[in-house]
Design a protein around this nucleic acid. Structure first.
Lengths: 131, 131, 131, 131
DNA sequence: GTGGTCTAGACCACG
DNA sequence: GTGGTCTAGACCACA
């Protein structure tokens, strides 16, 4: 899995990494039971501080995306189905509001949502060839 | 428009306020051309420092949601239609990934998106009446 | 002479007006000896506070662009030739620096300067038809 | 790079600093990729508040002259070549108008522009050695 | 140790 | 009375 970190982004590095891992799980690049690289190894590969990687793993563990196994390190879990995440819904609500402000109608918004779903699931639509 | 600020939240106050105003514009609670309260007035009403309100207004102004008019203070604008926001799309992509991880299929995800759109537009669906 | 005021601009109204009058003198729209509208009249025409117009006139008077005649009001003067203005030179220096940062070479910069001179003098070049 | 701040000046301190940094980039005193002092350090050196320096950095970042890197602090960038800046052109137009009002002909004006360009680029002409 | 956030209060420019 | 600027100092997030 390719991870790109942008240290000039407003989003903290540990969140960028956390988000990338979530995307990796959603797309199937990471499968439940799979072990992630060690904190030090991944930090070295990405050229970042290992404390930062540690923070990402801890956050993902708290959210149920990972389990920290004493012997195998961080292992991909699968959060219980049907759970709803308040933060996620809030994100969605805000994205909708911003779309409305830009004059996007519901049909166009849902088309965009669908495209994002496809992309996140690792089955990018035709329009995604360029990106 | 009712604004609730949670000073315990990890999200900065100025961003909470910024988001609330975007939601207000989307829902029609705030209409283009309408003047917002002065920074000092709103700060006083919310029990926060006026610099914090100022930062929200400045951010919204930079994003095109407000214009700072010398005579009228902060006035609601409307960002150019049809523009797309990378940050917004990124939020959507992540929300989709998180939904996928929770086992939500595309149909259910789009239903959630639709509900959010309705709610943001100020026309909450039946399920949303309570929230 | 057409004066357009933008109350949403970062530049103060009185300076916008001051600048517009300088441009009017440079282009010949306003000629030495000509009387400007009264403070109250111009304020009314522009829909701004007369104190603001007063401040513009006072600034122009202090710079030698106008003389305030007790009977005729504000009258266009002509500052002594050959004077150099530190503020103006500083503006030029900064404009040059910004051009350099954008990768503009000296030839292109001087072409831009020349176009501005032509435009300010009321003899806009061919490229200015659209603007 | 030597920075001189005049707290008596009508121009805000953060703008004076912003302008000085732009001049520094243009002249080559600051090179792309170079890290600037931390806001607190520079503030301390200049005897001003760190919030003021922060405001300069934020403005320069918004204009593309700097990027704020999470690990290295403020780093000199280079704005995309070929872009044009309305504010800069406006400055130029006004400088031309003021020159015309002083009776400066186009040749003399362009000579002044050229001198400014040379000075800003760090290669001052002979006349400018003293300034 | 860095920048980010928030508070608090003073003074000024503007209209 | 409005926003803009500046100062001062505290606490926190980040790396």
């Amino acid at each position: 899995m390719i991870v790109e970190i942008n240290t000039q982004d407003a989003e903290p590095i540990y969140e960028q990494l956390r988000d990338r891992i979530v995307l990796g799980i959603a797309s199937g690049e990471l499968t439940p039971g799979e072990a992630l690289p060690s904190v030090r190894r991944l930090a070295s590969d990405l050229g970042i501080n290992f404390h930062t990687v540690n923070k990402s793993y801890a956050a993902l563990s708290a959210e149920g995306y990972l389990v920290i196994d004493r012997r195998r390190g961080a292992v991909v879990a699968r959060p219980p189905s049907g759970t709803s995440d308040a933060r996620s819904t809030r994100r969605l609500l805000l994205a909708a509001a911003e779309a409305i402000c830009r004059g996007t109608d519901e049909t166009a918004f849902l088309a965009l949502c669908s495209a994002c779903y496809q992309k996140a699931s690792g089955r990018p639509s035709n329009q995604e060839n360029g990106g």
